[in-house]
Simulated assay, not measured.
Amino acid sequence: MSPERPLYLDHNATTPVDPEVVDAMLPYLREHFGNPSSAHPYGRRAHEALEMARAQVAALIGAKPSEILFTSGGTEANNLAIRGTAEARAERRHLLTSTIEHPATTLPCDALEWRGWRVTWLPVDAEGRVRVEEAERALDAEGAETALVSLMHANNETGVLQPVADVAARAHRHGATVHTDAAQSVGKVPVDVNALGVDLLTLVGHKLRAPKGVGALYVREGTPLRAVTLGGGQERGLRPGTQNVPYAVGLGVACELAGRRLARGGSAALGALRERLWAGLREAVPGVTLSGQGAERLPNTLHVRFPGVRGGAVLAATPEVAASTGSACHDGGESASPVLRAMGIPEADALGAVRLSLGPDTSPEEVDRAVVVLARGWRQVAG
């Protein structure tokens, strides 16, 4: 590990592409270049590969292959889910989401609010978990007016898993469609669309060792949805445009590999590494705190707050580690992450946040080394 090639602890931002994924993609970047909508052998070969990938994605989340739409990534999938539901269910004018969603959810919801929709922004508790009773209260108040509930499965910063199944059950009693952004959770923990009870689910390639620029939207059979872009009839007419076959192939293989890792106990192994990292930091950095400590979290995600310093300063003093903070820079200053604000964490405390997210290739030795250099960086900044 060196400043030129630091230890990568930012897998929630993006993941390295698995070598098996690259190998699977290459033939479709070289000889199998056909358009999957074409009837000749080149097109048929591409179409077969596309349908194989669709089946691989579906298998990971307990869906039918026909329920998988390929997209350019999570942002497009979320927009199609939210805006497409609004178009299809325009007789209802209310939607429900949370205060800790990714901008790919909050901004489409904002846009609908500007168009006259009523949006209920569900609060979270001190652990960063949506309150189910608040969702139930909002649904009871709006009655038959709620078109959509969109609730992320796991928060990208804290890793806290949300009560999607509980909220979905209540939403369906009111006739609402339910969407979950599962970009951070698919491949890290078992995700089953039927166990969650969702009608729409977003997953993202670059979060599970496929390339950037590909994702998928699960659409349960019979779910009302309209296209938000106009063009050809690809992807059941809901996502027009010639499919990106090499990247869809890569996503399919990445999903198959993720399923194998989960079957081998990959979640438990990551969780043990995460706890090793937390135990080391807790011993080496007096006063360090853990976000979402009392909630169920992604096994790879450790969101800590270093005392008396800014998280960005700790990372700047620790070039040996590549990780992220949740703060945002504005005109030369920093402000706390909206997620931590929603959790009620004071600004000064929230500014000390650092997100450390592990991957399947992270080793115990790397975790131990990360503890040493992060503690050293904190001491250097804290003086």
Score class of each variant (00 low, 15 high):
residue 3 P to N: 12
residue 117 W to F: 12
residue 325 T to E: 05
residue 16 P to L: 10
residue 377 G to P: 08
residue 135 A to T: 04
residue 61 I to G: 00
residue 195 A to V: 12
residue 156 N to A: 15
residue 61 I to H: 00
residue 101 E to R: 05
residue 183 A to G: 11
residue 101 E to W: 01
residue 60 L to T: 01
residue 273 L to C: 08
residue 283 E to I: 10
residue 251 L to R: 02
residue 290 L to A: 04
residue 308 G to S: 04
residue 214 V to I: 15
residue 107 L to V: 15
residue 321 V to M: 06
residue 145 E to T: 01
residue 202 T to A: 09
residue 30 R to M: 14
residue 161 L to S: 01
residue 46 A to W: 04
residue 182 A to N: 03
residue 381 V to L: 06
residue 146 T to W: 00
residue 322 A to W: 12
residue 238 L to F: 07
residue 63 A to S: 07
residue 181 D to R: 01
residue 213 G to N: 06
residue 170 R to Y: 06
residue 372 V to N: 05
residue 364 P to C: 05
residue 160 V to K: 01
residue 367 V to Q: 03
residue 123 P to R: 13
residue 357 S to G: 12
residue 77 A to L: 04
residue 218 Y to W: 01
residue 346 P to T: 10
residue 12 N to W: 12
residue 41 P to E: 11
residue 236 R to K: 13
residue 67 E to M: 07
residue 252 G to M: 03
residue 13 A to H: 14
residue 116 G to R: 10
residue 134 E to G: 08
residue 226 R to P: 07
residue 354 V to S: 05
residue 133 E to G: 07
residue 83 R to W: 07
residue 197 G to T: 07
residue 47 H to G: 12
residue 46 A to D: 04
residue 144 A to E: 14
residue 248 A to Y: 04
residue 242 T to V: 15
residue 183 A to N: 08
residue 5 R to Q: 13
residue 10 D to T: 13
residue 122 L to T: 08
residue 55 A to Q: 07
residue 209 R to F: 11
residue 134 E to I: 07
residue 322 A to Q: 13
residue 366 E to P: 04
residue 281 L to R: 08
residue 268 A to T: 06
residue 232 G to P: 09
residue 55 A to N: 08
residue 14 T to M: 13
residue 214 V to P: 02
residue 102 H to Y: 05
residue 85 T to V: 10
residue 368 D to W: 03
residue 47 H to K: 15
residue 116 G to P: 09
residue 96 L to F: 07
residue 241 G to W: 09
residue 374 L to C: 01
residue 247 Y to Q: 15
residue 193 V to L: 04
residue 32 H to Y: 14
residue 83 R to Q: 14
residue 2 S to F: 10
residue 188 K to Y: 15
residue 50 L to P: 01
residue 297 R to S: 04
residue 82 I to R: 07
residue 43 G to E: 05
residue 148 L to W: 06
residue 56 Q to H: 12
residue 185 S to R: 05
